[in-house]
C-alpha cells in the first residue's frame, strides 16, 4: 500500500511537471530541453527557504513558483529569438548551465553535498500516514492546473498560442505580438514545473544537483512526447507510464548494478520507437 502511494506520488509530481512542459512544447511548439532545470530551480528555491529559514510551506510554494517564473522570463529573452534546431540546442545548453550553477554556487545550494531533511507541507501531519495527504494535495494541484490550462487554451488567448505554433509569421501579420504570447506561455510553464520541483524536494527530502541535470530535462520531454504533445491527459499518461516502467524493470529481477543503465536504455528505446512510429505520442495532436 505504501509502495503504491509512493508510485502515485511520484507519478503526480512528474505529471505536474510534464503539464508545464507540454504547455510550452505541445501547445506552443517550444520544444524545450530545460524544464529539468526549472524543476531544480523550484526545488532549490523552496528547499532553501524551508530548511534554512523555516518558512511555512505556502510561502515556499509561492517562492518556488516566483523563482522559476523569473528564471523562465529571463531565459525567454535570448531563447525565443531562436527557431527549431537552434532553440533546442540553446535550451539544452541552459540545462547544462543550470546544473553547473546548482553544483558550483555552493554558498546557495551547498553544492554537491545537496540539501537534506527538507520539510514538507504542515498539513501532512494531520494523519499518521503522511503520504495520503501529500498525494491529496498533489492531486488537487493537478486538477486545478488541468482546469486552469484547459480554460486558458479554450480562450481567445489559447487560440493565438496555437496559431503561433503553426505559423508564427502569419500570426504576427494578423497583428499579434507573438513574442509576448510565447513568453507568457514559457513563464507559466516554468512556474508549473518549478512547483512540481518543490514537491519533489519535499517528498524525497534530500536533493542534490545531479537530480536536476539534462537527464531530467530529457526525461520530461520524453514523457510529454510519449503521452502526446498538446494533450493534457497525455501529459499525465506519459509521466505515469515512465515512472511505472522502471519499477517494472525492477520486478524483472535485473541486478542492481545494471538497473540504472537498463532504465536509461529503455528510455532511449522508447524515444526512438516513438519518433519512428508515432511522433504524436499516445494522445497527442501535434506532430513535430
Amino acid at each position: 500500500m505504501d509502495y503504491l502511494l509512493h508510485i502515485a506520488i511520484l507519478s503526480s509530481i512528474y505529471s505536474l511537471a510534464v503539464l508545464g512542459q507540454n504547455y510550452a512544447s505541445g501547445y506552443t511548439g517550444l520544444i524545450s530541453i530545460n524544464h529539468g532545470a526549472f524543476m531544480g530551480i523550484g526545488a532549490y528555491a523552496g528547499a532553501i527557504l524551508l530548511k534554512w529559514y523555516g518558512v511555512p510551506f505556502p510561502v515556499a510554494f509561492l517562492a518556488a513558483g516566483a523563482a522559476t517564473g523569473l528564471a523562465a522570463w529571463l531565459l525567454s529573452f535570448p531563447l525565443l529569438k531562436l527557431k527549431g534546431d537552434s532553440f533546442v540546442l540553446v535550451s539544452f545548453g541552459f540545462s547544462f548551465i543550470a546544473f553547473n550553477l546548482f553544483l558550483n554556487w555552493r554558498g546557495l545550494t551547498n553544492g554537491a553535498l545537496g540539501l537534506k531533511a527538507i520539510p514538507g507541507p504542515e498539513l501532512v501531519n494531520l494523519l499518521d500516514n503522511t503520504k495520503i495527504i501529500f498525494l491529496a494535495i498533489l492531486l488537487a494541484l493537478i486538477l486545478i492546473t488541468l482546469w486552469g490550462l484547459h480554460k486558458i487554451l479554450q480562450s481567445s488567448y489559447g487560440v493565438v498560442i496555437r496559431a503561433t505554433r503553426e505559423n508564427q509569421k502569419v500570426t504576427q501579420i494578423a497583428g499579434h505580438c507573438t513574442d509576448s504570447y510565447r513568453r507568457s506561455v514559457f513563464v507559466l510553464s516554468g512556474v508549473i514545473t518549478g512547483i512540481a520541483g518543490l514537491f519533489l524536494a519535499s517528498y524525497i527530502s534530500t536533493i542534490d544537483p545531479t537530480l536536476f541535470n539534462y537527464h531530467l530535462s530529457v526525461l520530461l520531454l520524453i514523457m510529454a512526447i510519449l503521452g502526446g504533445l498538446a494533450s493534457l491527459k497525455g501529459s499525465i499518461a506519459g509521466a505515469t507510464l515512465l515512472i511505472v516502467l522502471p519499477e517494472l524493470l525492477r520486478f524483472l529481477g535485473l541486478p542492481n548494478s545494471i538497473l540504472a543503465e537498463s532504465q536509461q536504455i529503455s528510455y532511449g528505446l522508447i524515444l526512438i520507437l516513438l519518433m519512428y512510429y508515432r511522433p504524436v505520442g499516445l494522445f497527442g495532436t501535434y506532430k513535430i
Partner: peptide, 23 residues
Amino acid sequence: GSSLVILVASFGLLIILQNISAL
C-alpha cells in the same frame, strides 16, 4: 520525418549507446 523528429530520435540513440558503453 522532420529534422526535429530525427534530432530527438538521435538523442534516443545517444542514450542507448552511452549506457551500453557504461555497462
